[in-house]
Amino acid sequence: MKKKKSAPLSRRDFLIICSKALPFTGLLFFPFTANRLLFGQEIDEYDPTQHDYAMGIDIHKCIGCGRCADACKKENNVPKEPYYFRTWVERYIISTEGESYVDSPNGGIDGFPDLKGDIDILRTFFVPKLCNQCANPPCVQVCPVGATFASRDGVVLVDEKYCVGCRYCIQACPYGARFLHPVKKVADKCTFCYHRLVRGLLPACVEVCPTQARIFGEVGLRSSPLRRFLRFNDVVVLKPALNTKPKVYYAGADGEVR
């Protein structure tokens, strides 16, 4: 289009300009839509009593890429050192002699090195681990001050401003899912990415799992992918004898997993 110099815009020219600019007007509103996307729904609308979350892990699908452990650290600002993890991936190798070898170098974030020794492999697989968000959480039971608790939607959370740092909860957790934050000096653990859930987003580890080995959703919702997972798989929980009633369900977990 040629624009006439110093002449007022004709009605037709104006419309043409407008139509060309239309795609870009979207950009004006972009921050708003983006925020709506990021924050999914208004948090005020969130009713914790209407939710009951759980996670499924399909061991047959896990490729041990460690993206979940990596994303978890990035999403939740977990210290980078290799001994603080909210989630990590273990590699199990069961030899033909029946011996089990387990490792989790840097939680699996940097991949799993080739085994130098020659183990005669019978079976081998990866197992992602995280806080089991127990319905009967031993960590909550032992917290002396009420600084760790199950929220109304059943997620076990830590109150950073109230935790005294006695570490009793870390001792009480059978899954090694808790650690003492080296800077904050309070207990720290997986929150199921609670800050994402209330905005309608998935936990970061589920978001980035490239093979959908992690399935997340509502237990009580017929249409949730988790319901489907629970319907079509034989699932187990870890250390069931301790009666912690975990809400992380494993499909295809070997008896050696613990």
Binding site: L37, L38, F39, I43, A71, K74, E75, N76, L157, D159, E160, K161, T191, Y194, H195, R196, V198, R199, L201, L202, A204, E207, V208
Partner: peptide
């Protein structure tokens, strides 16, 4: 306070 945590992964 937990909810107020910043989101890094957009989804």
């Amino acid at each position: 306070e937990v909810i107020a945590q910043e989101i890094n992964y957009a989804g």
